[in-house]
Design a protein around this nucleic acid. Sequence first.
DNA 1: GTTCATGGTTTGTCCTGGACAAAATGTTGA
DNA 2: TCAACATTTTGTCCAGGACAAACCATGAAC
Lengths: 313, 313
Amino acid sequence: MNTPILAPGGLPIAAVERDTGLAKDTLRVWERRYGFPLPVRDSNGERVYSPEQVDKLRLIRRLIDQGMRPAKLIGLDPQALGQLLEELGSPRADDDPERTAHFQAILKFVRLHLHEELRRALQQLLMKMGLQQFITGIVAPLNHIVGDAWLRGDLEVVEEHLYTEQVQNILRTAISTQTSTTRERPMVMLTTFPDEQHALGLLMVEAMIAPEGACCVSLGIQTPVEDIRAAATAGRFDIVAVSFSSAYPARLAVDGLRSLRATLPAGIALWAGGAGLRGTERKLPGVKIFQSLEEIPHALAEWRHSAKAALQP
Amino acid sequence: MNTPILAPGGLPIAAVERDTGLAKDTLRVWERRYGFPLPVRDSNGERVYSPEQVDKLRLIRRLIDQGMRPAKLIGLDPQALGQLLEELGSPRADDDPERTAHFQAILKFVRLHLHEELRRALQQLLMKMGLQQFITGIVAPLNHIVGDAWLRGDLEVVEEHLYTEQVQNILRTAISTQTSTTRERPMVMLTTFPDEQHALGLLMVEAMIAPEGACCVSLGIQTPVEDIRAAATAGRFDIVAVSFSSAYPARLAVDGLRSLRATLPAGIALWAGGAGLRGTERKLPGVKIFQSLEEIPHALAEWRHSAKAALQP
DNA sequence: GTTCATGGTTTGTCCTGGACAAAATGTTGA
DNA sequence: TCAACATTTTGTCCAGGACAAACCATGAAC
């Protein structure tokens, strides 16, 4: 049982699946077809992956999420993969030098584990910019930066956790001050499918919706599709919004959204967004796919407009 | 790929894995060994599970989480399984009628999905009782009640989620108003081991510590043991506190705590608590095991006392 | 020049049935 | 009562074959 400690850094296939998001079957079939990754075997003949292999797999995973194909990536060395990622990673030529400075400062606090300073810096920016601007201008790009850095092994697990936790605190507090007593339409239900681990995307959406005065109910992560349907119908919600992190397999997302759309009453809109949905718009008729958080206020306004039109024809 | 829609209500194996948390391999091996679930096959020979099978699988899963064994469960019909779940929910006789009334009211709001009323009721109680009393007197017992009800199938997933989310909001907001700028000793690091899904226990601990003026840093859930050690050492923490929900296998908890205690410097205390640790105290020398949240303030005072004594001998 | 159908290729997921170690349970002796 | 050992249960892993959906390139039609 202690073998993961005895074999320093070597990971069994289940851990690799967890860490990279690549299914066990996929890992085995890659080995068979491409010859990578070729893990060593323990005394029982089971695969043991080296940290280097896992790192490379993470890079490949990330690039596949961006639309590249495995065959073209698997032969490359980690350095080349890293370069590809940098090129793809939104041309992070940030024109706003002030914002870049903010990012640098915050990243420094994260790296040095200065939680108090981190909290204060975020809080200050929130106060200055307002919730929605703070989300789209700071939190969303920072999530990207932190996520990238973590993938590249440039940030420790602990540091990523620290960042996530502090942002969550700030956002939850900010949202709960907004939400005082709005019962306005539309009523939005917010959640994720099972297996989704990341609550931050959900919170960002909630933070974008709350200031618009809509009634937004978050169920947190991991609600089974059938339960989403039942609750949305019973609660007379107008919109069901589902969020997908980049780690979520697009296939599962599309599957779940299709089946949800099919069983959800036509009167309830289905919204979905997040990095896990890149390039799936065409496959999901009847589902509104968001490319970015900034579209949310406009979409809400649009919903209200057509709701009003429907009332007075 | 559209089969899940064409076969109404029939789910492919990946969807069942998603909905029940049972691995595909486990589903196949149960079929082979016990003859349940025996899904029909689609035109391609792939398994298609009925909703009834999935429901029964969910019940079995819950009972297994409670410590029962598959062989004894799989032959039973859903009704018997439900009854077993009811029996497991421990009878909790509460002597305080006022508190019981609060619980009843809150449970009613949860059942009716009245999120706004739920939030307000909790907020009100928090204001009246103060954070620590609110945790030990309301939140902790309510968690138990809600957890039991969910286990028995007496509460929907959605309702449990709603409750959890609202409590989290309340607690996070309350904590962040307490934490303004305390840098007082002891410095406590708070987290869980990987595979732990529940953040609420962590938050309750944080809420018990914050009003004592200690510096409490939560890393959220799922931090690998090695990273906990590294971060605690580098950050010069005084105490590392780890929380375990009832679903966490006690054996894993004991193992992890032992290995953490062995690698952590002797000067850093290791605290652990939560339902997942029932009856393990003796096996863990050097680890302070908490039976209840109410012990926390006293333990903090004790730590401060002995720290002072160490300075002035 | 853009859209649409076509056919070939790539790729992820599913299958069977065997194997084994960790966990749980039962048994024995101090 | 507890510890050590034997046995059963149970989840996860493995190999290697199969197949359909997703992707890509080519050419035809508007």
